[in-house]
Design a protein around this nucleic acid. Structure first.
Lengths: 209, 209
DNA sequence: TAGGAATTCAAACGCTCTTTTGGAACATAC
DNA sequence: GTATGTTCCAAAAGAGCGTTTGAATTCCTA
């Protein structure tokens, strides 16, 4: 069994358990037993539980940042009048493309983000901001430029509405789509949910009310 | 020092620390030392940490359910054509009224709810649904009736968008309003944020797109 | 195929946690 | 003023945690 195998199995198990239960609620013993590796493997390969948590986020965030940076750069050089619609489209395309490339689950990713948000994990906040904050700041800046007529504070609150709606919806995707399946026999993919989400958040952002 | 004093002080400290740090990240030692009571007081008055968590939620949810039930009943007997706008108004009024009555913090309440959602705390989910699920189900039923032309699955997703935007915004209220204050010198109250939030979520619910 | 580095493993260490315990302090009622 | 029930407290029990250790094993290269 090569090292990469152990490391990947730990990351898979950790991502799944963290997303479902939370960080402190998930012990290294749960993770290593789920991953079928020895307890000491986490500290051997990652150094500590904190570092493991950061590694789990890195696996999601690095490809997302890369995708988003690339798409934003393309958009900037294609036109100088970028619309909010294009930017929001970029964001969700990046999310879906980056998770698909890595064979990951966007719903699980959003569960982890929601968790990182809800629990004030200082070390994680700092780490995420230091490693991946630039893409987010750039996205916000461009969106602000695309919506110059909105008062700054209103813009900020609407950005918040957008993030909340997106994060909550995708993080709850599994349970919502399960309910829809059993109650209405309706099969829904993440792409279907995103297709509904995009016009909704754009409507909120651009609203004149 | 009467019992009620100790119990209240524990609940206050627990709500504040849970909201800020998470459930497992907050030890009974932190809570009892913050509350200036003996460590054993939690187990004496509440039985266990789990029960304390439930009690913290109960203190928020019971007044909210009561307020919401009352307002929904009034609305039902006032008119048979209830609008989505009226229902969303009811929900936020109930939230603000119930927290104000009890001298509580709506942002803290939403932080706790977001936490309960993010971490799959089975005992808590069951408890909340069993004790307070009825009001939520009734609200959803009335909202569904107010928006009969929307496909059932689209309705469900939009409900999700609404909950996400509301929960996230209010749970992040302290940090957002802090940023607005320091960046734009703009002072924002929770009511201001809710005043922006209501038209935004109603727009999402009623949209024809 | 021998040797050295990388990885895995069982066991234990030290720590913090929730919960329990039995008695002390207090209030209330007879 | 004593009896009774409630509340508080210091201490310890018992369980689980992250981490460390050193030996065993596997892997790779020379």
């Amino acid at each position: 069994m090569a090292q990469s195998d152990t490391v990947e199995r730990i990351l898979d198990a950790a991502a799944s358990l963290f997303a479902e239960r939370g960080f402190a609620e998930t012990s290294l013993r749960m993770i290593t037993s789920e991953a079928n590796v020895n307890l000491a493997a986490v500290n051997y390969h990652f150094g500590s539980k904190k570092s493991l948590i950061q590694a789990v986020f890195s696996r999601f965030l690095s490809p997302l940042s890369a995708e988003l940076n690339e798409r934003l750069a393309l958009l900037r050089q294609a036109t100088s009048d970028i619309t909010a619609q294009q930017l929001v489209g970029c964001l969700f395309e990046s999310l879906m493309a980056s998770t698909e490339k890595e064979g990951e689950n966007p719903a699980q990713f959003m569960q982890l983000l929601a968790l990182a948000y809800a629990q004030t994990q200082e070390h994680l906040r700092h780490y995420i901001m230091a490693e991946h904050g630039a893409s987010y700041v750039e996205f916000t800046r461009l969106l602000r430029e695309a919506l110059p007529d909105i008062e700054p504070d209103v813009f900020y609150w609407r950005l918040c509405f957008m993030l909340g709606a997106s994060m909550f919806t995708l993080s709850a995707f599994d349970s919502i789509s399960g309910i829809l399946k059993s109650d209405y026999g309706k099969e829904t993919s993440v792409d279907d949910a995103v297709a509904l989400l995009i016009p909704a958040v754009i409507g909120m952002l651009e609203s004149s009310k």
